[in-house]
């Protein structure tokens, strides 16, 4: 993954999480994962197109997702209901949009697809021939991984 793309995603994820949750967010070490990776339980997906092709996946456990949605809504949610899903989807949208804005300032042009959310147990994701950059963020609500797999258009 192109070096210039990394920072915008890390910064955007960190800024948005800190802002919406109003809490301490700890950045952990970034790393690369091979193509097929397990998904923790709730995955919000945003596609990217333009100079590049790929996608951003915001991945967390169901428990963390409910807690994060509760915090963002200012009310206690108990299950992964419509409101919780909409909230996580919006979170993914905010993070990706801010990253894309930062990238545009650096001269890269990306387009976004509308976010979608996938929930379930024992899921994994694979992307043909692209390795994914994982940005792990630890917060009181749990671990959230921003999983970015993009490549230059051939």
């Amino acid at each position: 993954m192109r070096v210039e793309y990394i920072n915008p995603f890390v910064e955007a994820a960190y800024n948005i999480m800190t802002e919406v949750l109003q809490t301490e967010v700890e950045r952990k070490d970034l790393y690369l994962k091979k193509t097929t990776q397990p998904v923790m339980g709730v995955a919000a997906l945003v596609g990217l197109a333009g100079d590049v092709e790929g996608r951003v996946l915001i991945d967390m456990s169901q428990d963390s997702a409910i807690k994060i949605a509760s915090t963002m809504n200012g009310e206690k949610l108990t299950s992964m209901d419509e409101l919780a899903k909409a909230t996580i989807t919006e979170l993914a949208n905010m993070i990706t949009a801010q990253a894309v804005t930062k990238l545009f300032d650096l001269g890269f042009k990306f387009d976004l697809t509308p976010p979608s959310i996938i929930t379930g147990e024992n899921m994994s994701v694979s992307d043909a021939n692209v390795e994914a950059l994982i940005v792990p963020l630890e917060m009181p609500q749990g671990l959230v991984e921003i999983n970015v797999a993009i490549r230059e258009r051939a």
């Binding site: 192109r2 070096v3 990394i6 690369l32 091979k34 692209v130 390795e131 051939a154």
Partner: peptide
């Protein structure tokens, strides 16, 4: 030059 953060032990997509 295109600098990429990449682990070459993974799949390499190259021209």
């Amino acid at each position: 030059i295109l600098f990429e953060y990449h682990d070459i032990t993974h799949d390499n997509t190259l021209p």
